[in-house]
């Protein structure tokens, strides 16, 4: 049996009221490995795009398949890392308890967490190098550490596709670099799709890049035609490409 495609989107349209948020989006991910970065301005539909993949939002037209099934039915293969800034960090919950919630569907309804759930949570915390912090209340961590805990929560269920919503926002350059390094390790075992408005995220660890601003521009490569970027951001590319640490964009043609 041929392996199922990780992700298949065909002509996906999403609208909110009369406003169109996503227009005719097509995307294919074949193999469960590699890191796809999706960049686009704020309000360009990045979060909506993720919500469609998570089955939280239904497109009014088009087809979405994850591992050959609908998003709702493939949730056990998908790990999700939301924007870490939207949490109440005063919440009385420890790092350990947060990561265990990533096993909640495996443990079963109304049952306590089993040994194998705890083992998976421990392994996930080791992967992100946060096991020493497991007793900490989540408010007592730095931004980068919180981000790692949320990644561990998603990893606890051993996903084949990892979705990250602006994981790099609010992190200082050093912490961003650590984050990309971690994602660079993880992408060998799973497909990773991350959305970001920050172009400096397009670092050496990203394998492919797409641009999203209502429409998705994607050429199955790491190289990004200037026209696509300009169509996405609607401003001269020099402005946004300024200060990229690892230059992956093509040089301008004279």
């Amino acid at each position: 049996m041929p392996e199922k495609k990780v992700l298949e989107m065909r002509e996906v349209w999403v609208r909110y009221g009369s406003q169109i948020i996503l227009e005719a989006v097509n995307l294919d991910l074949e193999k469960p490995e590699g890191l796809l970065g999706i960049i686009g301005p704020n309000g360009g539909g990045k979060t909506t795009f993720l919500k469609v993949l998570l089955g939280l939002l239904k497109p009014y037209r088009g087809k979405v398949k994850l591992f050959g099934k609908s998003p709702e039915k493939s949730r056990e293969l998908v790990g999700y890392v939301p924007q870490y800034k939207r949490f109440d960090y005063d919440f009385p919950i420890s790092v350990w308890e947060v990561v265990l919630t990533g096993r909640i569907s495996h443990a079963g309804f109304l049952k306590r967490y089993r040994e194998e759930d705890k083992l998976a949570a421990k392994k996930a915390l080791e992967t992100v190098e946060m096991l020493n912090f497991k007793e900490r209340q989540i408010g007592q961590l730095s931004g980068g550490q919180r981000q790692r805990v949320l990644i561990a929560r998603a990893l606890a269920s051993s996903p084949k596709l990892l979705l990250l919503d602006e994981p790099d926002s609010g992190l200082d350059p050093h912490m961003q670099e650590e984050l990309y390094h971690l994602l660079g390790r993880l992408k060998k075992d799973m497909a990773i799709l991350m959305v970001t408005h920050d172009l400096s995220a397009v670092s050496i660890h990203v394998d492919k890049i797409a641009c999203l601003n209502r429409k998705l521009h994607y050429h199955n490569s790491k190289e990004l035609p200037i026209e696509d970027l300009e169509a996405t951001y609607q401003c001269p590319v020099e402005l946004i490409a300024h200060g990229i640490p690892h230059r992956v964009l093509k040089q301008h043609k004279d």
């Binding site: 998570l54 089955g55 939280l56 949730r75 056990e76 998908v78 999700y80 939301p82 949490f87 919440f91 919950i93 308890e97 947060v98 265990l100 919630t101 990533g102 909640i104 569907s105 443990a107 309804f109 109304l110 306590r112 967490y113 929560r153 269920s157």
Partner: peptide, 21 residues
């Protein structure tokens, strides 16, 4: 009975949905 479900729900409702609960 619902201790772990209520904790997950209160901390992150969206994630709880995504987990299939």
């Amino acid at each position: 009975l619902f201790y772990k479900e209520f904790l997950a729900l209160c901390f992150d409702e969206e994630f709880t949905t995504v987990q299939g609960l």
